[in-house]
Design a binder for these strands. Sequence first.
DNA 1: GCCAACGTTGGC
DNA 2: GCCAACGTTGGC
Length: 140
Amino acid sequence: MNYWLFKSEAEVWSWDQQVAKGDEGEEWDGVRNYQARNNMRQMKIGDRGFFYHSRAEKEVVGIVEIIAEAHPDSTIDDTRWECVDIKAIRPFQTPVSLAMCKQDERLKEMVLVNNTRLSVQPVSEAEWKIVCDLGNTDPS
DNA sequence: GCCAACGTTGGC
DNA sequence: GCCAACGTTGGC
């Protein structure tokens, strides 16, 4: 299984909205960046991801699961752009802030810390466990 | 609200 | 194919 991280501004698409979608989940649409899209193309059903609120909160707030692999983005008439579908699995007991990640020596290689502009990123298994641990949250 | 970093566009 | 100009993201 692979691990990922999805960024969203809470004003645009929040964790609460994702949770409200339940098991049906929702398209992760609107990505207009090739690196982010390429990451989504590598996702498999059952992969897990962090849900991160950028800009205002800057913290990991929940865990999601990939429920549909890359398909054309329904919000644009341009075949270049694809997206996956995700559903909420569980919220973080304690949100893990960007500042916490930056302070943790073990996370200094994390894409979140080093490439702030990438909106869909890979997370290593070790990083996954560390962040879940920091958030007192079940990593499974 | 500002601005640095980055990605994309388009003229040449 | 290069690179300047521009637009957007996201941390601070």
